[in-house]
Design a protein around this nucleic acid. Sequence first.
DNA 1: ACTATTTTTTAGGTTTGTCTAAACCTTAAT
DNA 2: ATTAAGGTTTAGACAAACCTAAAAAATAGT
Lengths: 219, 219
Amino acid sequence: MNFSVSEENYIKSIYHLQQQTDTVTTNSLANELHTRPASVTDMLKKLQIKQLLEYEKYKGFRLNATGNKIALNIVRRHRLWEYFLVTKLGFEWDKVHAIAEELEHVSSTELIQKLDNYLNNPQTDPHGDPIPDINGKLHVIKQVSIAEVPVKKNVVVSSVGNQSREMLELLNHNNIGIGTTLKVNLRFTFDGSAEIKVLKHATCIISEQVAKNIFVYHD
Amino acid sequence: MNFSVSEENYIKSIYHLQQQTDTVTTNSLANELHTRPASVTDMLKKLQIKQLLEYEKYKGFRLNATGNKIALNIVRRHRLWEYFLVTKLGFEWDKVHAIAEELEHVSSTELIQKLDNYLNNPQTDPHGDPIPDINGKLHVIKQVSIAEVPVKKNVVVSSVGNQSREMLELLNHNNIGIGTTLKVNLRFTFDGSAEIKVLKHATCIISEQVAKNIFVYHD
DNA sequence: ACTATTTTTTAGGTTTGTCTAAACCTTAAT
DNA sequence: ATTAAGGTTTAGACAAACCTAAAAAATAGT
């Protein structure tokens, strides 16, 4: 089955919101898509007819198995393009989201197959998020934010929670990226901020808010 | 100014038809786009308001300078993507058109800049058609079909007129592609067929119909 | 338990791009 | 010069995806 750009955007957004809350609300989805609740309700009806949703009026909704699989396929496309834009075209990792958002809707499965192959089947995108395989399987890695990680222990950055322009600029300034090795020297209990040492760079202080958004591999 | 996918498709198709006939008719454009004449008229009004057309009711139309520049930009995007699909992802040249048709509408100029750079600023697409530069300049190369080229003279294949799967198969079988060096040994005036020698391969015979579709650089 | 507030849905309207059918021009043939 | 044929435009409708405003349902506060 084939989906419009709009339908795909709704499916993808529902998928994202489901990661945080089990069932999604009309308002939150409208907010995510910068659209109005009434428009969301309209689209929910369509997606329900297409059998992608579990949906009861006034009671929230979630993707069913079919919907989930489609969402994962869109996520796969998006993340492969992001990887391509950064590793091949030399984009900064905080600039690729909008472009990948357009590229992900190009609907040739052969294209994505060949792209995946060309990129040597990457496991994660430039933000550290895992890339689902053809069957929609996610290779989930155990992660912990550096707000929780033990001090004085070298860890490797695996992903970043908040992918806004502002956050990524802050990280660039502190020489932190996916794959960076760092160590939490100490944490200030007063405000939750932490002094961290990035490999080959001077120590720096990051706020609790930032610490909560930097994830590292957990062994 | 930004254009919808539909507008871009109309602009591109008008541009293509203009290559053959100076002024384009409603019916021919409807035919090209697999749409109805009435729909064409509707869109023409829009494009005229946006100042991209020279258009007089019932008298045909053509792109003005602005329209032409936009068309060349779309062509540029399309051909760069085709080049990418063939040289990087390993597609056959007869499979890339439909996919490039979708990719060409992704509207980031930075993306196309970086893609061009990554591909080392190719001058022609996989079919041998020239790729316009950022300013919409076409580096047109003088070409001659091998039905007209002098015999016993080494020439380099620059482009192919008919880009069907069948033609590609025939050319592949005879080891002919863009950039191939070949020589016409002799031509049979009876049916216009020609014996040709492809560099490093045995001689072969091609019909006049094929010969008329293989173009070579003309010095 | 009953209001007040918030959330969600419905009803009805707009825009874009398409369509069919009918009306309208142009051209070419007698 | 008239008409027949063909191409082109207009008129009116429709679907998709959005909107605002109002109604309906759920929830929260007392």
